[in-house]
Structures are given as structure tokens and as C-alpha cells.
């Protein structure tokens, strides 16, 4: 390698003077690190944490016919102490005492749980089919699952109105082939909400399950078969347990947002199915009762904190 003539040029060469000087210079404490941390940090504190603290504060305030429609306000520092004394848990007692809110919470959690299960029942075979498809198809299939996720949520929910309404496409189809004679009432019922949630959140369930199945070593199944396990049994004893992590992740990804969903129950569920997301919306926009809307929101967060924390623990452990 190389010729002797080069020896002195490269071999005996030592670090340049500039570098020796550089080596003696203490590590510079650039502005870069503090800026990279502080800018997003302050943004999140200012536009996420502080607003949420304001929600908590307003949830402890009283409704007032004013702008903003609540008191007390912490405008003048000299009145802070008296303002502080006006804060109370009245709104929470109000929520606890009114069956309407209780029912809305229970209904939201029940609908979210049921539609999570339904989503799983559809997503698992889909993800499984994708993972067993010829490798050449898989990129395309994956893209086809992701594509609806990129298109507007609102549009996808809207598309179902035309299908589900009494004179809609589903009823037209079913009546024309003679399965039913009177149109089914689906729109504005919980069934429509289920369909909407399953449809909208299907990619959230399919992708983590597919990711788990795709990662799985196919030789495990071959090993199970080799050891005498028939395919169905191999599925339940090997494949399914190994895909559980994806299943759990998918369930959380569907359940948590579904519980606070507004658009789907509003457009598909009609006025009689009152979920909690819509309750917040109504309290705020229709009743203009900001303190109660805030209290309802705070309670919803308190309920969702449990699954959120479990989910993050699980993700942290897996990652």
C-alpha cells in the first residue's frame, strides 16, 4: 500500500498547528443546545400547559353574563386574593348531580369500547391477510391502508351519510334485491356511530397489528408445524400471542380518541345520542356556559389519563 516516497508526507505529519491550538481550547458552550431545547419547550408550555391550566381555573369559576362569560377574572393583581376566594367546585358538583352528564360519560366509554372491539375484528383479518400476501403486493396494500388516513376525516364521515340515510344507497341496494321492504333506520342511531368510528379508525388498528405480524419470523410457524401443530392451533398458540403488542397498541389508539370524539357522533349519531365530546361543544357554543364546559373537559381528561398513562408505559417498555 502506498509508496515509500509518501511516507514522510503522511506518516510523519502531525496534527496541524491549528488543531493543536483547537485541542487546548475548552469545549465551547454554544447557544445551539439551549435554543433547541428552550424554543419548543416554551411553545408547549405557553400553548399547551398554560391553556390547560386556564381550563382548570375556569372550571372552578362561575358563569356570568359578561365577556368573558365567567367570573372571577384575574385582571387586576390587587383583586387576586378576593378573586381566588370566589373559586369553587360548584361546577363539578353540578356535573355529579346531573344524570345527563353521567350518562354521557358512560355512553362515551361504552361506545368507544364496543367500537374498539369491532375495529379489532375487522382490522385483524385485514392485517393478517396483508402480512400473508405476496411480498410484491405488500407495499401497495400498505399504501392502500394508509391512503384513507391522509384524506379528510370529515369527508370520510360525510360519505357515510349518503349511504346510511333512509333513502340512501344501502337501503336502495337492500330494497332492490328484496332483502328488506322498509328502509332500515341506521343514520342517527348508535349503529351509525359504530360504523363511523370503525371506518375512521381502521388504519390506526390495522397498521400496528400489521407491523407486528410483518416483523414476525415466519420460521416460527414452520417450527410449530414441524413440531406437530396444525395451522389453526399454530395461529392461536404462536402468531396471535406474538401479535398482541400490536393489538394492544391499536386498541389504545382507537379507544382514547374515540371516547372524546365529536364529529362522528355529531354527524352520524343524531341529537339523541349524546357523547361527551359533543356535550363539551354544546355547553360551550350553545349554552355559552364556559365554566361547565371546562369542568366537563377536565373530568374527561381525568378519565382518559388512566388509559393514556398505561399506553405510554406499554410503548416505553416496548420501545
Amino acid at each position: 500500500m502506498g509508496e515509500p516516497g509518501r511516507k514522510t508526507e503522511i506518516g510523519s505529519g502531525r496534527q496541524g498547528d491549528a488543531e493543536v491550538r483547537a485541542a487546548r481550547r475548552p469545549a465551547s458552550r454554544g447557544l445551539f443546545r439551549p435554543v433547541v431545547i428552550a424554543v419548543p419547550y416554551l411553545w408547549l408550555v405557553g400553548l399547551f400547559l398554560v391553556p390547560f391550566l386556564i381550563v382548570i381555573k375556569i372550571s372552578l369559576s362561575q358563569t356570568a353574563v359578561a365577556m368573558p362569560p365567567y367570573r372571577p377574572t384575574f385582571g387586576d393583581p390587587s383583586t387576586w386574593w378576593s378573586a381566588l376566594q370566589q373559586l369553587s367546585f360548584d361546577n363539578y358538583l353540578w356535573i355529579a348531580g346531573d344524570e345527563l352528564y353521567f350518562n354521557a360519560y358512560v355512553l362515551s366509554l361504552a361506545i368507544a369500547a364496543a367500537s374498539t372491539l369491532l375495529t379489532l375484528l375487522i382490522a385483524y383479518p385485514l392485517a393478517y391477510g396483508m402480512s400473508k400476501a405476496p411480498p410484491a403486493w405488500r407495499t401497495t396494500l400498505l399504501m392502500l391502508v394508509i391512503l384513507p388516513f391522509w384524506t379528510s376525516f370529515l369527508i370520510r364521515v360525510y360519505a357515510w351519510i349518503a349511504i346510511l340515510k333512509p333513502e340512501g344507497l344501502l337501503n336502495q341496494l337492500l330494497m332492490s334485491i328484496g332483502v328488506i321492504h322498509d328502509p332500515l333506520v341506521i343514520l342517527n342511531t348508535p349503529v351509525a356511530i359504530f360504523i363511523g368510528i370503525v371506518y375512521s379508525y381502521l388504519p390506526f388498528m390495522t397498521l400496528p397489528i400489521y407491523a407486528g405480524l410483518d416483523r414476525m419470523d415466519h420460521s416460527l410457524i414452520e417450527a410449530a408445524a414441524d413440531l406437530g401443530s396444525p395451522p389453526l392451533k399454530a395461529f392461536w398458540t404462536i402468531t396471535f400471542p406474538l401479535s398482541l403488542r400490536g393489538v394492544v397498541a391499536g386498541c389504545f389508539l382507537v379507544f382514547i380518541p374515540a371516547a372524546g370524539e365529536f364529529v362522528i357522533p355529531d354527524l352520524l349519531g343524531g341529537s339523541r345520542t349524546l357523547m361527551i365530546g359533543k356535550t363539551v361543544w354544546l355547553e360551550f357554543f350553545t349554552n355559552r356556559d364556559w365554566p361547565v364546559a371546562s369542568a366537563v373537559a377536565v373530568v374527561l381528561v381525568a378519565i382518559l389519563v388512566v388509559p393514556i398513562v398505561i399506553f405510554q408505559r406499554q410503548q416505553a417498555r416496548a420501545g
Binding site: 502531525r14 496534527q15 488543531e19 493543536v20 483547537a22 485541542a23 487546548r24 481550547r25 475548552p26 469545549a27
Partner: peptide
């Protein structure tokens, strides 16, 4: 002859 303590990787020879 030089103590390397505190010298970051990008300044070491």
C-alpha cells in the same frame, strides 16, 4: 503529555 479530561471528541488529536 496532555491530560485529555474535558476535551471533547472533536478537539482530540
Amino acid at each position: 503529555g496532555e491530560d485529555l479530561s474535558g476535551i471533547p471528541p472533536y478537539r482530540r488529536p
